[in-house]
Design a protein around this nucleic acid. Structure first.
Lengths: 208, 208
DNA sequence: CCGTGTGAAGTCCTTCACAGCT
DNA sequence: AGCTGTGAAGGACTTCACACGG
C-alpha cells in the first residue's frame, strides 16, 4: 500500500473524495466488491479515470474481478489522511456556521469541531451541542489551546481577510472559506473557498 | 458586444463570476479602470487568462489603457445572463436552507427567492422574511405557480434524488445541490453540487 | 475470459510572447 | 510607451486500447 505521489492533481483529489462517498454508500448496501465499470455506471463517472486515480497509489484491484469495497475505502481513507481525527474551529456562528456545526456534529468521523467563535456578545457563552461559543477576541488563545487544525470561516466578507490572518498566525493549517471575498492566501495554508453566489451565476449562464 | 461562443469552458465560466466579484469590489472603491495585470496582482489571478477569458466574447479592453470597470461589469453580467431576474426555490428549510435564503434575501440582485419548502409540518405556514414555507407535497404545484427556474436543494441525502426528479418534472431548469449524494442528473438541467465534507477531505489530504 | 493497470493518443487548458492599436 | 488580443508553444488531464495477471 505505497503512497508514492506527494503531488496529486486537485481534480484527482476531488474525485477520490467522491469515490469514497460512493463506496460508503455501496458498503451500506452490503456490496463487497465492484468493478470500475460498474462503479462508473452507477454513479455516472469514468471507468478509466477511476482506475488511473486509484493506480497512482498502488495496485488495489484484482484483475478479472474488480475492487474489494471495504479495503478500498480504508485505502482511500489513508491516502486522504482520514485515518486520524481533524480538529475544526468554526468562525461565525450565524445560520451558516450553525448549519455547518450541526452537520459535522452529527457525523462522527474524521472531523471534530473543537471551537466556535462569534463577534456578537449575546451569543458568547451559549452552547451549540456541547460546545461553548467564544468571543472572537479570544480566537488566537482558544485556537492554540484546542489545537484546531482546520477553520471554517463564515464571517462577513469585509472582516474575512483579517480573521484569516489571525487564524493562520494562531497555527491553523487549512481553511475552508465561505465569505464571498477573494482571500490573499498564505502559500503554506491550503485554502478553499465556497461561494454560493458564484455557483448561482454559473448556473444562470446556462439559462440565457 | 458580440457573444459568439455558445460553449464556454466550466473553468472559464467560474472565473468570469470571480472577475465580477473583484470588479464590483473595485467599483465600490471608486476605481473606474484597471489593466489585466493590476487586476491579476490585486486578486492573485493570471493576467493572460483574464484577457483570454474576456476576449472570447468581444473586445472590451482599450489597448494601452486597460478595461473600464463599469462597462466591463455590465458586459460580464450580460454574458452570464445576470441582466434579468432569476427565480429561486429553496427546498429544505433547515439551518442551511435558512442561511441560504437570508444570504440571498439581503442581496437584491439577479436572484430572487420565490418559494420555500420543508417536510416538517411544524414549519409549514411560517414566514421566512416575506416568504411562506410550503409543505413539500405542494412542490410541483408551487414551483409551477411561481415559475421558479433554479432550485437550491438542501434536503437529507436519502430523499434528494426523488426531490430532484420532482423539481425537474415541475419545470425547474437548474439545480444547486447541497445534499451529500451523487445525483443522477437530467442532461438538460445544469446541476452543480456543493459538498462540505468533500472539501474538508481535500483539505485533510494536505495535512497528512 | 474478464477487468486492472498503463503507455500512447487525443483533447483541453494555460502560459508565452509579440503584433497591433491607442 | 503601454496594454490588449491572439497565434503558437507548452503542460495537464482524459480517453483509448491493449498487455498482463487472476
Amino acid at each position: 500500500m505505497g503512497q508514492p505521489p506527494q503531488e496529486v492533481s486537485p481534480l484527482s483529489l476531488n474525485r477520490l473524495s467522491l469515490y469514497l462517498r460512493c463506496l460508503r454508500q455501496l458498503q451500506d448496501q452490503g456490496v463487497t466488491r465492484i468493478s470500475s465499470q460498474e462503479l462508473a455506471r452507477q454513479f455516472h463517472l469514468s471507468a478509466a479515470l477511476i482506475r488511473k486515480d486509484l493506480a497512482q497509489f498502488g495496485e488495489f484491484g484484482i484483475r478479472g474481478i474488480g475492487y474489494q469495497v471495504e479495503p478500498l475505502i480504508e485505502t482511500i481513507n489513508v491516502v486522504l489522511g482520514l485515518d486520524r481525527e481533524h480538529r475544526i474551529a468554526v468562525v461565525g456562528m450565524g445560520r451558516l456556521g450553525s448549519a455547518l456545526a450541526s452537520y459535522l456534529g452529527f457525523n462522527e468521523g474524521a472531523f471534530r469541531i473543537v471551537a466556535a467563535f462569534d463577534s456578537d456578545r449575546r451569543k458568547v457563552g451559549k452552547k451549540v451541542g456541547h460546545l461553548e461559543i467564544h468571543h472572537i477576541e479570544e480566537l488566537t488563545e482558544v485556537v492554540r489551546e484546542t489545537q484546531a487544525e482546520i477553520a471554517l470561516l463564515t464571517s462577513p466578507a469585509r472582516v474575512a481577510q483579517g480573521i484569516y490572518e489571525e487564524l493562520t498566525a494562531a497555527g491553523i493549517r487549512a481553511v475552508l472559506n465561505f465569505a464571498p471575498t477573494q482571500l490573499a492566501v498564505e502559500p503554506d495554508v491550503p485554502t478553499k473557498s465556497v461561494d454560493v453566489r458564484i455557483h448561482l451565476e454559473e448556473l444562470a449562464f446556462f439559462l440565457r
